[in-house]
Write a protein that binds this DNA or RNA. Structure first.
Lengths: 192, 192
DNA sequence: AAATAGGCTTAAACTAGTTTAAGGTCGGAC
DNA sequence: GTCCGACCTTAAACTAGTTTAAGCCTATTT
């Protein structure tokens, strides 16, 4: 039931006092997930912010042809949620599921809003968290519109080395926006 | 010298009291920009958050071959900044410049941090602003990795209709990650 | 009035990335 | 033990998008 990884995460931004930690303890849910188990499915609103304590998740969309496209991975000490759907309450177009057996801490919308009100520094902490995620995403857009698939793959390996070792190549290809076959060719070209 | 558009913008999230408005008034700078005039140039840290009162801007990168890639446009009532560089103080890789003669309101880093501290609700307001920007960017990534150039162009027209009418097609092509020549072909195909 | 520059289009030759199909390997389920 | 599904690779045929080059139009500068 340990909340400690989440507290450490928050305190890497701003220290919390005991009563704030207690409030968190009351509102955060601990959950074990199996490989392939889903946190979110298309057609349902995203009801939780999920913090990964152990394991790894992916968020993806299935397009009209049935092809999956990975939008984001989240490993230890990262958040994953469909933020748009979470706040609007509208059905999500996305899936979130465990790639490995995982442990997460979840906060639902009502609780998060309660926490924002009662721990004002959480507004600042999440503002910074999401600013960082925004910058990361912006770099990805930049790469996507300005680089070849091979360059994108090499950057991915460099930037998410640990993750890359844990993921099957099909998942990486889907994240890069290319087919697994073409990724295979890129890998061959790089090796030679 | 009117601050009103910015106040209206903030108050669309949370109302401000008079002393808060006064604090803003002391810390916000009004600026007129000519067409093509730059707010930010590669190699310099991004020193301001800029709020567009009137006109239109683009943020872009110049790659190793000298090609420009548009990352973002910002028209009336939108913010534009290289957030990563702003907070880290590191040199930006990006340019921001006016596409039309424009009026902006700017806040520099010291002032913004002062305002965050003295108007705590600004933490929440900017958290929400950036959450919205994040969702928008995420949708763009999704489109980019899962759709053809033609689909992306049609979505752009639908989503940013006003903007599309104000921008030259070369700028739109650069935003979509394609050449102007290919955009021209897409437009021809659509028309027929 | 002429010259220039930015923007839009067309078309032919090219290249990056997809599709389809097949075959191989490995680990888990029955 | 074998069967099945997930994953990786190769290769040939194809398609989406780029490159190069040329020509046209309009607005601005000289």
């Amino acid at each position: 039931m340990s909340l400690q990884p989440l507290i450490d995460h928050f305190e890497s931004y701003i220290p919390l006092n005991e009563s704030e930690k207690q409030l968190l303890d009351d509102r955060v849910t601990h959950r074990q997930m199996k490989r392939r188990q889903a946190i979110l499915q298309e057609g349902f609103p995203c009801r939780h912010y999920s913090f990964v304590v152990e394991g790894c998740f992916r968020m993806y969309k299935i397009d009209s042809k049935g092809t999956e496209h990975n939008l984001q991975f989240a490993a230890e000490n990262e958040w994953i949620a469909d933020i748009g759907s979470f706040h609007s309450g509208r059905p999500s177009q996305l899936f979130i599921e465990a790639i490995e057996p995982s442990i997460i801490l979840q906060i639902d919308k009502e609780d998060l809003y309660f926490l924002y009100t009662n721990i004002p520094k959480l507004d600042r902490i999440f503002k910074v968290i999401i600013e960082n995620k925004y910058v990361e995403l912006q770099n990805r857009v930049l790469q996507t519109i300005s680089s070849t698939a091979q360059e994108r793959y090499l950057t991915f390996l460099e930037q998410y080395r640990n993750l890359a070792l844990r993921l099957p190549n099909t998942q990486i290809a889907s994240y890069l926006g290319i087919t697994p076959e073409f990724l295979s060719k890129i890998r061959k070209d790089i090796a030679s």
